[in-house]
């Protein structure tokens, strides 16, 4: 597989043909879309779309938030599942983390006596909330054999409700400087890239990663091969939950406020990023690198349209089309390959 040198050097098998990585075609799409906006930028506004550090940073910051969730969702989809709860879990963990991140002596704080806690406390609370929701998702799916779609749909509704109930719908703000640092500058981007790299390695080089592909590829064969399907699935959902929780921390720190309406619709953007990046909803197929590019495509489209001053409603229409076209193009590519 990745040990290409070994494969090529062994006499038993034919010399391996050089193959472009699966992500190559989708990378071309990303570059193509960016270039189209570049041209349109010069035509309509006499400005460069790409040579615009400020605009690009904003775009990449937004991509990072969706991207964090999308990494977890990609693993879930590879394992043959789905996660609709991620956007709501972002909101819930943002609320809970925020409530532990407020400064000392702020009399309208959620926990007035707990002001000025070290930054690790709110961060861990956010991750814990994510882990709990993810574990519940996984456990109900595995132990009670309820379809993932239903379980995570239920969690999506309940977690959003809980996020609102937590403060009675009131936003939470006045964070410590340490907490705000998490969302400042390009820190969210660094966090996202570190997470993406970490799970890229997990998926490709660990037994856990390979088990996930096997479970999504053929759950019965995976069981016969000695894989503990239930344990691995619960782990995947829990990890995805933790990543949604992390996204909640990052989102609230960057916005300098925790609000129960945060992360609205993120779950669908994350699924879209994974699917555009070549992850198959049938399971067993997908890569983190593809998902990162998929998230970038979504980001470039929305920032490109904003850059050109095009109606946001029109943006949505095009975004929907791109999702479907990306998958159709991928099907064509696969058919041609086989």
């Amino acid at each position: 597989m990745n040990q290409t040198t070994t494969v090529a050097s062994l006499p038993a098998t034919k010399k391996r043909k050089f193959k472009l990585p699966q992500e190559f075609s989708i990378l071309l799409v990303l570059i193509g879309i960016a270039l189209i906006f570049e041209v349109l930028g010069w035509v309509k506004r006499d400005q460069s779309f790409l040579y615009n550090p400020q605009g690009l940073l904003i775009m990449i910051l937004q991509v990072s938030e969706i991207g964090l969730i999308a990494v977890g969702v990609t693993m879930i989809i590879i394992a043959g599942g789905i996660d609709l709860a991620s956007g709501s879990v972002v909101a819930l963990s943002a609320m809970v983390a925020s409530s532990f991140a407020q400064v000392v002596g702020y009399d309208r704080a959620i926990f007035p006596s707990l002001g000025g806690l070290p930054v690790i406390i709110p961060v861990l609370m956010g991750l814990l909330i994510g882990a709990i929701t993810g574990f519940i998702n996984g456990a109900v799916i595995v132990k009670m054999r309820v379809p993932a779609f239903i379980v995570t749909l239920g969690m999506m509704v309940s977690a959003r409700g809980l996020a609102r109930y937590y403060t009675g719908g009131q936003p939470v703000s006045m964070f410590t400087d340490d907490y705000l640092w998490i969302g400042s500058g390009s820190n969210p981007v660094i966090i996202f890239l570190a997470v993406a790299l970490f799970f890229h390695i997990v998926l490709r080089y660990t037994r856990f990663g390979k088990s996930i592909y096997a479970i999504g590829g053929n759950v019965q064969a995976a069981r016969v091969s000695g894989i503990n399907v239930g344990k691995n699935l619960i782990a995947v959902y829990t990890i995805a939950g933790v990543l949604s929780g992390l996204a909640g921390v990052v989102v609230s720190a960057r916005a300098q406020t925790g609000q129960s309406g945060m992360g609205m619709g993120y779950e669908l953007d994350a699924i879209a990023a994974a699917v555009i990046g070549g992850t198959s909803l049938a399971g067993g197929v997908g890569r983190i690198t593809g998902t990162v590019i998929g998230a970038l495509i979504l980001g470039v489209i929305s920032s490109g349209f904003t850059f050109l001053g095009i109606d946001s409603y029109l943006q949505e229409i095009v975004k929907g089309l791109i999702i479907v076209i990306a998958v159709v193009a991928d099907q064509f590519r696969k058919k041609r390959a086989s």
């Binding site: 390979k210 096997a214 019965q220 064969a221 995976a222 091969s225 049938a282 197929v285």
Partner: peptide, 18 residues
């Protein structure tokens, strides 16, 4: 097909999974 192969995976991955 039903309980043996992982059709979407490679020859190597299929061989080493167990």
């Amino acid at each position: 097909k039903k309980t043996g192969l992982f059709l979407s995976l490679s020859v190597g991955e299929n061989m080493q999974i167990a």
